[in-house]
Amino acid sequence: MARVYVSTVINGRSDRVWARLRDFNGLPSWHPGIAESRIENGEPADKIGCVRDFRLRNGDRIREKLLGLSDFDLFCTYSILESPMRVENYVATLRLTPITDGDRTFAEWTAEFDCAAEREVELIASIGSGVFQGGFDALKRQFGG
């Protein structure tokens, strides 16, 4: 089982950051790598179990299922149903925690998955530095550094 962990500090209150991340269909509005997204079967994006079908800027298509969403603990957990990444049992969680001194937010993005042993290092790097850190860098810019 491979594990990715990336975390950062965002200069915005956690409720404001959460307002953006909470929308399971909202990746294109904040993540620079995502071109477009839709929720299958016309379901609401906060219905647990709904599936987002989205396209990356490089054309890759990914389908992910919402497993858990909490307005109380500020986290979103999802799994990959279909992707060109050749990973199995991929489950990821994006979690926010308020930083009480200074109205900032601690953001953590974790993933666990199985893959061929020789691809593990490359996948951890591309998911961690590419997808997760890339998303965090964009969020930090959107919230002023």
């Binding site: 962990y5 990336v6 975390s7 500090v9 925690t97 601690f106 953590e108 850190q133």
Partner: peptide
């Protein structure tokens, strides 16, 4: 918890 992109520490 580590703040991985800046080698700092989140403490709760």
């Amino acid at each position: 918890a580590p703040v991985t992109d800046s080698d700092r520490t989140f403490w709760e």
